[in-house]
């Protein structure tokens, strides 16, 4: 294994071990995501029926909100006893540390989505599971795009004051295209006649976004994390 992928693996394994011991982020994030879905259900359901096409939007709102929570907590944990500084001082490539962190967040979010998708499908009578492969592709590409920007911003905000409020303030305007593309693709999936051309367009946009923003993050992680 080369040095880069070894560092990625070590960072990922460390985060996984810490998380498995307490499951703090996983449980709180999941509960928060479920509460989000329920609040939207109470806000939007009228006379016992869910609005047309609301499911796609609610799913992505829950992912974005829960993702922000997970990002904040993951790096708050690193801030206590300055473990992030130790991580950055280690003789390892900075981009590898970023990739390790990113994969951890993506794994956490995908786990949450596995619970959210059936829940939204059930509560909003949406045929979300009719095309599992397409849905998985949309969710994976969307999650990577959201987490790529989120991981970089959460990491750089570790040093800033009022970081908990600043993270969503900075993150949401930048991730708007991911949310638009994710919601539109999921909504196209939920149509009675699935529109493959539309889904392909949004997937292509999501993949381009992922490539551009992961590249930019790898490129800027080094100067942004240097005091």
């Amino acid at each position: 294994m080369s040095g880069f992928s070894r560092t990625v693996w070590l960072v990922l394994r460390k985060d996984f071990t810490v998380e498995v011991r307490s499951l703090e982020i996983a449980y709180t994030m999941l509960f928060f995501a479920v509460s989000c879905v329920l609040i939207f259900a109470f806000a939007l359901v009228q006379e016992g029926r869910a609005p047309e096409g609301g499911a796609a939007g609610i799913l992505w709102i829950a992912v974005a909100f829960a993702g922000t929570l997970a990002l904040g907590r993951t790096f708050e944990r690193e801030r206590q006893s300055e473990t992030l500084r130790a991580l950055l001082l280690a003789p390892a490539a900075r981009p590898a540390v970023y990739v390790g962190k990113l994969l951890g967040i993506v794994a956490l979010l995908l786990a949450a989505e596995m619970l959210l998708v059936p829940l939204v499908a059930l509560l909003f009578q949406a045929p979300l599971l009719a095309h599992p492969v397409w849905l998985a592709l949309i969710l994976v590409t969307g999650t990577i795009g959201f987490a790529a920007v989120g991981t970089l911003f959460a990491a750089m905000l570790v040093r800033a004051r009022s970081r908990d409020v600043l993270l969503p303030v900075l993150l949401y305007p930048i991730t708007v295209p991911v949310i638009i593309a994710g919601v539109r693709a999921t909504a196209a999936l939920l149509q009675p006649e699935m529109d493959a051309a539309v889904i392909r367009f949004w997937l292509a946009l999501l993949v381009t976004f992922d490539v551009v923003f992961v590249t930019l993050s790898l490129w800027t992680f080094e100067p942004l994390m240097t005091d």
């Binding site: 970089l152 040093r159 009022s162 600043l166 800027t220 100067p223 942004l224 240097t226």
Partner: peptide, 13 residues
């Protein structure tokens, strides 16, 4: 509101 060091972060944003 970012405190010291926020100049670099703002440039990243």
């Amino acid at each position: 509101y970012g405190g010291p060091g926020s100049d670099k972060l703002a440039a990243g944003l």
